[in-house]
Structure formats: structure tokens, C-alpha cells
Computed example of a mutant assay.
Amino acid sequence: MAVTNPAKLLFADGHISKRDLIDYYRWVGPRILPFLRERPIAMERYPNGIEQTGFFQKSVPSYFPDWVKTIAVQKKQGGIARHVICNDVALLVYLANQACITPHAWLSRVDKLEYPDQMVFDLDPSADTFDWVRAAALALKELLQELTLSAYVKSTGSRGLHVIVPLKRTESFESVRTFARAVATIVVMQEPSQRTLQQRTGSRHGRVFLDINRNAYAQTVAPPYAVRARPNAPLSIPLFWEEVRSKTLRPDGVTLRDIRKRLDGMIDPWADFRRRASALGSAWRKLELLGVSVRVPQKAKLR
């Protein structure tokens, strides 16, 4: 594939070119592709660099070559959209050449789009309160472990953290979102002065927003190792839980320039992510034993 305008600066502050972005995605392909394969992708593109306005593109442009794998999916508001499916390094590199800084992936795979294989808690600070974000993430981990669910954490590359639970594909998005809301409610009640479920920014009053709204059909998440469209090209990085306890942790602390040093000889914190997938059946019942009132969606089955 011929690279177009390789010297074009996509991150002027860090002097990071399109060639740098392409080289990075080619190198990190084996690590990021397990979180992209067989999932519809939304492309976050900045053809003129991040200093200029970018755009999200869900539907595949007409000029994409025939070898690009796609899937037609039903849109929430009706109609059909054709999304990219990124299964190999060649396509990942092609997307980078299209100035796709971040490929955002669905939480479900093409053979079972209505059933997610992960549950996401997006911890979003309302102010410079990252210590509160770390505390909320650790509280989530403790509660999820009590519910016998595996919890993994990654930086967003922006301001917060993602806590993600790998799931067996036995529950609908509606069911998973209901469960996530119940869990988030408990964690908020533990520290209501620091945490909130209020979606409106003006109602958060400086508290950390525990966002569970990504747990819905056609919602996406930046996968591990994705570049984010922020100054100096920070990455969304899988973390060890021990790192979350450190006050030196920053959500944008690892960049495209220094990722190789971090990963050199390092064990992957998410190496067993897929093998630890769980059904929610027993976790639903454990929530009820904790005295949580959970309105289970009509279509959801307690297993």
C-alpha cells in the first residue's frame, strides 16, 4: 500500500507525522487486533491533524478499496450503515493512512451484534480529581470481585479510566446496562460526595461520573493501545491494578513516543482477558443478596 503524505504532521506539538502513526499501528497490530477483530468500527479521523476539526465516520466511504472488509448493520434510528471490520494489520495501516487516529470498536461482534462480550464503566472526572477516579476504579474492582466477575482496567488516554468486565455472550445490551447501573449505584452510594451518576455536567459538582451508557447497541470504546487525538498522542493503555493504586498514574501518561519502552519485556496485564469471560447469572443473584433492588429487563433471563 502506498502511503500518502507521510510527512504530514498529525500531532504538531509532538512533531508526530502520519508515517509515525502508521509505523506505530503496524508495530502494535498484534496487541490491538484482538480487541478489533470481527467488530464494527467507527473511525475518528483528522485529515489535517488534531489542531484542526476532525470527524467520526461510521459508514465506509465509497472510495475505500474492495478488499476492505465491511458489514451492513441496522442503525438505532432506522436504516442501514456499512461499517469497517478491521481484522488484520494491513487494514489497520490503511486506516492510519486515512488519518484515522482512533478506531473505536463496538462492544459486540458481528455474529451476535445484540449481545456484548464486555461491560464498560467509563470513569470521567468533572474536575482535576484523578485521585477520585483511581478510588472509584478500585471500589468497582472490589465490588465486581465480590460478584465473582473479573475486572480489567485501562487508561483512556484522555482524563479518566475504563474498568471493563469480559462477558460471555448470554445477555442483551439492555440486561448488561441494567446490571452495570446497579453496580455503579452501589459504588456511588459508597462515596456520594466524590461520585455521581448524573449525566449533565452541571449537575456533577466536581464529582466523578460513572458512565455506564456505553453498554448499548452501536456504542463504541477506544480499544487498548489505541492512539487518542490529544496533544503528544497519548494512548489508551492496559494497566495492572497495582498501578491504579499509585498516585503517580496519569490517564494520558503513556504516548506513542514512549510506549515501546513501557512494553519492553513487560507482561501483558490483559493477557487472559478473553479467557476470564463470565456469564452474569450468579452475579445477578449476588446483587440481590446484597440488598440491591434490581429491575431485570423482561427479556433478560437469570441464569
Rank of each mutant, 00 (worst) to 15 (best):
Y217Q: 09
V221K: 05
D211E: 05
V221M: 13
A216R: 14
R207K: 14
H205K: 15
D211M: 01
N215V: 04
R204I: 08
I212R: 02
Q199N: 07
A218F: 11
R204D: 10
D211H: 08
I212A: 07
H205I: 10
P223N: 06
G206P: 09
A218L: 15
R214Q: 15
L197Y: 01
G206T: 14
R214G: 08
V221I: 14
R207S: 00
L197M: 07
S203I: 01
N213G: 05
V208K: 00
Y217F: 09
A218H: 13
R200N: 09
T196A: 05
I212P: 00
A226E: 00
T220K: 05
Y217C: 07
Q219Y: 15
L197I: 01
Q194W: 11
A216F: 13
V208Y: 00
Q198I: 15
N213T: 08
N213A: 07
T220S: 04
T196G: 02
N213D: 12
L210N: 00
R207L: 01
Q199F: 07
Q194K: 12
Q199A: 12
V208T: 02
P223R: 04
R200C: 08
D211R: 02
Y225R: 03
R207W: 02
P223K: 06
F209V: 06
R195V: 01
Q194M: 12
R214T: 04
T201S: 11
I212L: 05
P223C: 07
Y225L: 04
P224S: 08
V208N: 01
G202T: 08
G206A: 15
H205A: 07
Q198L: 06
D211G: 03
I212Q: 04
Q198R: 14
Q194D: 09
Q199G: 15
A226Y: 00
V221P: 00
G202V: 14
R207C: 11
